[in-house]
Write a protein that binds this DNA or RNA. Structure first.
Lengths: 210, 210
DNA sequence: GTCTATAGGCGGATAGAC
DNA sequence: GTCTATCCGCCTATAGAC
């Protein structure tokens, strides 16, 4: 249903109003999700009238899609993989531990990231194209980078770098989901460092075996 | 806001209507999420009038909470951990592979489970108590069982069974989220068996090292 | 381009008959 | 207990002035 609409990318970055609307829309949509967000509140958050919102974006769905697309390709694009200077000289143990810490740090330090993922997951049924954009821009990117590192690092000889990358990322993302998104910190407590230590050891050990 | 309301569990299983309402509510809420579901449609799906819905449940929020609580404690309680006859004689390799396959099978064969998780994740901001109930009844349970197996299996001597259980479950849940929930199958394809094979090997290898 | 004002409809919740 | 009918507010979207 929502795929049939024309892309309607904002033609120019012309008006600052368009920017304000996207900013206000982000605040509201990330906080309340798609259905629970009203265009009135978006307009107020953006500091413009509702009619102005509709002059820049076709409708609620169009604004939402434009906004999330933008976040997926911009603000949150590199959350899972900060452009790390490839330190092939450093021990993999340290590289992997740092990488895991940076991934979790970036997620937690970007205060809106948790809400962003909530919306992506929650609306993945109604907006499959946004879910796919998330996979392409964020998940796939992080898989590729880690796979790349596993393949090129001389100390690591993994039989399946791709699958190992999935295990690494999956463990960390699930950790974030349970502890933070689902408020599981007090129910199933687990030190971040402890999980990472075990995860890294698992991989290093595997590399030595092969 | 939503925690202050009285529990208002349906006093008795008296009327079959209450059952029909919960059934209809499940259909609607799992398909569209909380905000996008209307009480009119719940009533229609349940085959009763809207007034009858309100005579059994305080309001929309009350129905939603009662419904999700019920799913968390019943229908989907054991999705992540089918009561497996502890086969301590069987090789851990096989036990773990079967366990992983059953976990993913159960998620995928229960057709509403994906929607259920979508709702839990999507509404975890507005309904934190439901997210916590999910963690207690589903995540924690599966951690415990796996930890238990790791601890008691004679062939497995893991230095940190709890953390290893997290890695195991996390890898599989994240796999399900990316491939199925976020429609990533075609973008980042990965054979289920391949991932599981690598995951199991990682753990077995670790056990042998220690 | 941007505003105010409003149309038109749907949604949550209830009154009151039976 | 269950229904029909209805209240009233909020929501999406637009008309028309400036």
């Amino acid at each position: 249903m929502e795929q049939t609409k024309p892309p309607r990318a904002d033609r120019q970055l012309s008006s600052e109003k368009a920017e304000a609307i996207l900013e206000g829309g982000m605040q509201e949509f990330l906080a309340h999700g798609y259905a629970a967000t009203s265009m009135d509140r978006v307009a107020i958050a953006a500091g413009v009238s509702k009619a102005t919102v509709y002059s820049h974006f076709q409708d609620k769905e169009g604004l939402f899609i434009a906004l999330i697309q933008r976040l997926v390709e911009g603000k949150f694009r590199s959350v899972f993989g900060p452009a790390n200077a490839q330190v092939l000289q450093t021990a993999p143990e340290i590289v992997l531990r740092d990488l895991a810490n940076r991934l979790l740090d970036t997620c937690m330090n970007e205060p809106q990231f948790l809400n962003f993922m909530r919306v992506i997951l929650g609306e993945s049924g109604r907006f499959p194209q946004l879910a796919r954009a998330f996979v392409r821009n964020i998940e796939q990117t992080s898989f590729k980078r880690l796979r790349q590192y596993f393949t090129t690092c001389p100390q690591l000889k993994l039989s399946d770098p791709e699958a190992t990358a999935r295990i690494f990322i999956g463990t960390l993302v699930h950790f974030m989901i349970v502890q933070e998104m689902l408020h599981g910190k007090d129910i199933v407590p687990m030190e971040r460092a402890r999980l990472i230590e075990n995860l890294v050891k698992l991989i290093i050990n595997q590399a030595e075996k092969t």
